[in-house]
Amino acid sequence: MPQKVLYWKGCMSRFRTKTIADSIERLLTLLNVDYTTLGEKEGCCGSVLYRTGQTADALSVSKNTLEKISSLNIKDVVTGCPGCFRTMSQDYTNAFRSVPFKVRHISQFLFDMQGELRGHLRPIEAKVVYHDPCHLGRHMGVYEEPRALIKMIPKVDLLEFKYNRNKALCCGSGGGVRSAFPEISLEISKSTLGELPEGTDILVTACPFCKYNFVEGNNRKIKIEIVDLPELILRACGG
């Protein structure tokens, strides 16, 4: 019998990109996943504190979170945020040695459930480009699962940025730059959007921070849709 899953939403999806969290919950329900969330009690994974050099606070916040999740006795955690994913996988292991649960990014989770998912997918006729989030790709080595999921959708034409996978350009929002220097962050977002292949209908990313920054950076200048991976998958499922 499959184990209970904790869906860790992450701060961006809880407060800024709520449609990503909604899409993930609807997909989990559709796939009959026995899952729970921490709701209001979720708290912070510590990622932004680690990335902005506030290490002592990062350690205390993440220790708290580690204990909170451990006390649920759930071994299977899934998140839609690559920042949380990387922090809980890498930084927690570095700091606390043993982490009593396994974290997967939603793209890995859905990829592992492709048998159940496939039957739900209806065609989307569009030229789609996938953007590799830094935390998911370069930092955690997850490049192919999101692409495989996109390709599973009938009629989707998956295009690539010239620089993709380990050479992908950043969306501009990483490492605390978006809060320290919002002007720089938006400029980088625009410059990465400028590399989109001609004819792109949908830019798909797999990170709430990337989605948010691309939407802001684009400011409706280029006629494209910017969506997160679970949002695209849910749409293919008729959601």
């Binding site: 701060c11 932004v48 050099g53 606070d57 916040v61 809060s179």
Partner: peptide, 21 residues
Amino acid sequence: LADKHRMIKENILKTGNPFGE
């Protein structure tokens, strides 16, 4: 420490999220 980064930390410690919401 940039003011914004300090604010984020304070929000996290107070409310559990960087936005202080």
